[in-house]
Design a protein around this nucleic acid. Structure first.
Lengths: 329, 329
DNA sequence: TTGAAAGCGTTACCAT
DNA sequence: ATGGTAACGCTTTCAA
């Protein structure tokens, strides 16, 4: 692999000068500059990011930790958004998939410039490490006390509220909610929106209206259906914490001969790509995943360039998308 | 950031000895070893991958180039497979999203240990660079002459054959095929399977049965539908080069009042997760995307560890999955 | 068994 | 305007 010294030799200068030319540091005579550039061209030289990073400079890479159990659509939209941000600024994305302990080490070892987290609460240990290493971070779909971390999330409370109110407006009163995992901040906020909507319309939230789901999967939705089918009376509507849950629920109910939306209304969350062309097009809440991914990458790169972002918490708006899976009871 | 010298100082040895302990090089007295390990523990020291990589050692990272226009499901399955491989061997994955020129440079600069390509033909320039830099590579869903590159792909010819033969067996004769982009080897092989099946049953492939699509998207499928709807006579069945195309086609036809499978049979390819719960569950060909991703990562890491893989071309089997979108004419 | 010195490719600081 | 030297954190080679 050709290095600065090789270029220097060919251009008849010292390698320092080569470095100066590469980094546009000025203080290089135009003739010399030209000679160096020619040598670079001739040898096909490219600077090594590693050498750079070793001098505590940037390696133009951000790290992201992917934890499992994410729907295709979510991961894809998120990656698309992050990709857009990275591409714009010519950054690479480093993914590591190790187990939960020592989550951050692989990134530190490789001296990434910044970190993206999402849908995870940061442990105090992680926050300590982040602050100690003074590494820029963004956290997507969650909040965090540390001033070092910028948080971007969508207005899940509003989303939960909109979804529930939509059902209430249609005339439903026995509205169930599939409650997402408690360690998921988005799910907690959607739950809160549901509660707020119910209460503001003087509807009581009986215990049997709350249906916990362990994760966002079709199988979890099917499980909920199995549980509901054992009851004397179904709720007249279900606000699902995610589209995938809604799909599973809808499929299983349909197999049991229950019609959507005639017998039961179902509303999802995320507005994933498939909502539109399933058996019964799903009413859902638009979750700006791609936008948050993009903005997250951009915000992070701003951090890295020492341009502190204007706000440390940024909330993205959501929107109710009405399709065919909801109707008056 | 704490380094080898810090550890050495605390353990009262030279940093060389620390290096030996870390790499299990032996030739270290057990007492010294223990002392060093304690110091490492106490300081929370972790070796820097960068320092290592600079000495042309491994940085435990493989690179992958993602080019756009991939369906959610495909990307997700592929990532899941690759993740499994990486996790097992504690490797990280580096993604870069630059434009087409200079595709490989970002990876070389960062000294990745190996490269994964997929669904792309490698240019001769890229092959030249790979061979020159002597960097292990795997290519998924395509073939390549270079002996340096291992190729893994699924049996698309068989898949195209199975799909077409299924339709023929049902009694169809006017079977159309949406022909994928010509720069996509998988699409070309599926096309070939279609042709072979038609010919082996003495069916002529009239020009109007070949419907080119520019990319694998629902919109492309809808475009095909628009084109078909202007004809006097529809084909009685369509073998779509991907599920996404099939979804778009199916949706658009349904909107025009044409029933699937009563009026027209449709078969997709990939067997993506959504095939099962769409309006009309889609007959499709199972494409082992996740498996190939996993095997690809494993094969690549074998390469990196200098264990040349047993075979340089590995073909994965496919399977026809019959659902509701195909029936006798 | 341990250590010293050199080198990997780059940049920062100080000198010329 | 240009270059020398040191430093980044590590491994390798040789010497003690």
């Amino acid at each position: 692999m050709v290095n600065q010294s090789d270029v220097a030799r060919l251009a008849n200068v010292s390698f320092i000068t080569v470095s100066r030319v590469i980094n546009n540091k000025g203080n290089v005579k135009e003739v010399t500059r030209k000679r160096v550039l020619d040598a670079i061209e001739e040898l096909g030289y490219h600077p090594s990011s590693l050498g750079r990073a070793l001098n505590s400079n940037s390696i133009n890479t951000i790290g992201m930790h992917l934890r499992g159990n994410l729907s295709n659509d979510f991961v894809h939209s998120l990656l698309t958004g992050i990709e857009a941000g990275c591409k714009q600024h010519n950054y690479s994305l480093l993914l590591h998939f190790g187990d939960e302990s020592n989550t951050l080490q692989p990134y530190f070892e490789r001296k990434v410039d910044g970190l993206i987290f999402f849908l995870t609460e940061l442990t105090t240990e992680e926050i300590r490490l982040i602050e100690k290493n003074d590494i820029p971070c963004v956290l997507l779909w969650d909040q965090c006390e540390s001033k070092v971390v910028s948080c971007l999330f969508s207005d899940d409370v509003k989303g939960g509220f909109l979804a529930t109110e939509h059902l209430i407006t249609l005339g439903h009163t026995r509205i169930a909610h599939t409650v997402g995992p408690t360690d998921n901040a988005s799910a907690r906020r959607r739950h809160q929106g549901y509660i707020t909507a119910m209460q503001s319309h003087k509807l009581t939230v009986a215990d049997d209206l709350l249906l916990p789901v362990p994760h966002f999967s079709q199988e979890a939705g099917r499980q909920v259906a199995r549980e509901l089918l054992q009851r004397h009376q179904l709720p007249s509507a279900v606000f699902c914490v995610s589209d995938l849950i809604a799909f599973g629920l809808m499929d299983a109910l349909r197999e049991a001969g229950i019609r959507v939306p005639e017998d039961i209304s179902i509303i999802g969350y995320d507005n994933s790509h498939t909502t539109a062309h399933v058996y019964c097009p799903l009413t859902s809440v638009y979750n700006p995943v791609k936008e948050i991914g993009h903005a997250g990458a951009e915000t992070l790169i701003q951090h890295i360039h020492n341009e502190p972002p204007t706000e440390s918490n940024r909330i993205f708006d959501v929107e109710l998308i009405v399709r065919k899976s909801t109707a008056s009871p």
